[in-house]
Amino acid sequence: MSRSGETEAKEPPASSEDGPPESLLAELRALPARYPQKRGALLPLLHALQAWRGHLTPADMKLAGELTGVAAADVFSVVTFYTMYRQRPVGRFPIGVCRNIACWVNGSEQIVSTVKAELGIAPGERTADGRFSLEEVECLGSCGTGPCLEIESRYFENLTPDKVRALIEKLRRDDRSPSEAILAAQREFPAAREARS
């Protein structure tokens, strides 16, 4: 694992049937030792597998189960409990717009409709080219800097429709790996305005 909690940029799998490459497997195998019981490594393992593939397949869940001594069905149960784990492919840039109170009071619905208009997709959908998908998410802890959207847990805050359009335009043209493109977009994004005493 890198410090970012994500795996280093690796070639995504060529086919949905491919298992993780040896370099990733080595990282995965090292995780259980961090915990008093192997099972503790289940969430990090699933994060790492999803960071690599983009979503989790049944084979990924079985692998995570084998490495942690957890029954496959139990891994499935865990995966379905947490909203961040995905069992279906999403866009290369999955956009999650916060719909909770502070963002909503400040116009998150306008943000959603801007994304919808720009991409021609509704929440829960993916663009035909597979580049973007959209969903509405619950509170991201960006209440003082809303409206907010996240792409693979990288935040874009104090949003306006114009900023959203510019962001989408940038990501449309960035062909680096998703994590590189998202971080680059975040660096170039106007800094969140933060009030304090």
Partner: peptide, 15 residues
């Protein structure tokens, strides 16, 4: 104290 929603200067205030 986090202050958010419809205020002029939302943010985190130590008081």
């Amino acid at each position: 104290f986090g202050i958010s929603g419809a205020v002029e200067r939302p943010g985190c205030y130590e008081l």
